[in-house]
Amino acid sequence: MSSEASQGERQATTDNQAVADVPRGTVRQAVLHADKLSKKVTSGERSLTILHDLSLSVAAGESVAILGKSGAGKSTLLGLLAGLDTPSDGELTLFGHALSRLDEDGRAALRAGRVGFVFQNFQLLPTLSALENVMLPLELSPRAGETQTAAQWLERVGLGERVNHLPKQLSGGEQQRVAVARAFVTDPELVFADEPTGNLDPDTGGQVIDLLFQLNHEAGTTLILVTHDHALARRCDRCLRLDHGKLEAVLENIVPTAASIDEGAQ
């Protein structure tokens, strides 16, 4: 290999243009690696440490649950891992790119088409139809047949007859199904789910989660799930607990079948 080629490879992790040029699926061994992340916020004269010296590595195709009480910093951690926020200290590598070397536009370009999100409050645009909401990630990562692809995903989540409905015309469960379709429509390598059943009743939430895990399994997508629900967390390959700003393994986490989950287990 020539020195020019070697220099080009090194440069690929240091600028925004390289993000757009790297083919999807190039880095498969470790999708995400966090090294000694810390997050501090200042309010007046008071400094609060939310996350401290936190490290995590997630392999391609792995499903990881992050448990924690309300206020433990789970959503803050998810925002850092997704590059939506920046840490006070430490380094995060996503798809082989050190996020500290990318500006906000560069991080967005890195996520485009490769990362999907499912949020607790759905995050649908109220003036757009179900179909248009699902099409949004496709517009950020253009490809042929956007409308047909989005319609097919709405069909897959059971909303083939609701493509033209606005979010206010859909139930909570239906809105979250739209959000799930939106998360998977670009065939992403990584999906983040932040308390995806938090605003749903148990029966509806169970249906949405079954759908989420089914689609994730079929696509072989890497999944990082933030939740306070132990039963839901046990459906992942690995379970971690966020406590006092640090992650620790939940050793008793065994991957059961959906039918064997004890909803009352702790």
Score class of each variant (00 low, 15 high):
Ala151Met: 01
Gly198Phe: 08
Gly116Phe: 09
Ser70Gln: 13
Leu48Ser: 13
Val64Glu: 01
Phe117Gln: 10
Gly61Gln: 03
Asp210Pro: 00
Glu62Arg: 05
Pro188Tyr: 10
Leu136Asn: 03
Ala259Gly: 15
Gly158Trp: 01
Thr197Trp: 03
Pro188Asn: 07
Lys40Ser: 15
Val191His: 04
Asp15Glu: 14
Val22Met: 09
Asn133Glu: 10
Ala12Trp: 08
Glu195Lys: 05
Thr197Met: 00
Pro167Leu: 05
Gly79Cys: 07
Pro188Gln: 08
Leu99Met: 15
Asp262Ala: 10
Pro202Asn: 04
Gly83Phe: 12
Leu215Ser: 07
Val27Glu: 08
Glu248Leu: 05
Gly158Gln: 01
Pro188His: 08
Val22Ile: 13
Pro137Leu: 04
Asp35Lys: 10
Arg46Gln: 14
Thr93Val: 12
Leu225Pro: 08
Val185Gln: 02
Ile261Pro: 01
Val58Ile: 15
Phe184Val: 08
Leu102Gly: 04
Arg46Asp: 10
Leu159Glu: 01
Trp153Val: 01
Gly206Gln: 11
Arg24Asp: 13
Thr93Leu: 00
Leu251Val: 14
Leu84Tyr: 11
Phe192Pro: 09
Ile209Trp: 05
Val226Cys: 12
Arg162Cys: 09
Asp229Asn: 15
Leu138Ile: 01
Leu136Met: 15
Gln7Leu: 14
Ser88His: 13
Ser63Trp: 06
Val180Pro: 05
Leu32Glu: 03
Asp262His: 06
Asn164Met: 06
Leu225Asn: 12
Thr222Gly: 04
Glu195Val: 02
Thr227Tyr: 03
Val22Ser: 04
Leu102Ala: 04
Leu77Gln: 12
Thr147Tyr: 03
Leu212Gln: 00
Ile261Gly: 02
Lys39Thr: 08
Arg143Val: 08
Asp85Tyr: 08
Val178Lys: 05
Ala98Met: 04
Lys74Tyr: 10
His230Lys: 06
Asp237Phe: 02
Val185Met: 02
Phe213His: 12
Thr204Tyr: 02
Gln152Asn: 08
Ser141His: 10
Leu247Ile: 04
Ala18Asp: 08
Leu131Ala: 14
His97Tyr: 12
Lys168Glu: 14
Leu48Lys: 09
Leu190His: 07
Leu211Tyr: 01
Gln207Asp: 15
Met1Gly: 15
Met135Thr: 02
Ala144Phe: 03
Ala34Cys: 13
Glu4Val: 11
Asp85Arg: 11
Gly73His: 02
Ala144Met: 04
Asp89Thr: 11
Lys168Tyr: 11
Ala60Gln: 13
Val134Ile: 14
Glu62Trp: 05
Pro256Phe: 12
Ala18His: 07
Leu124Pro: 09
Ala179Lys: 09
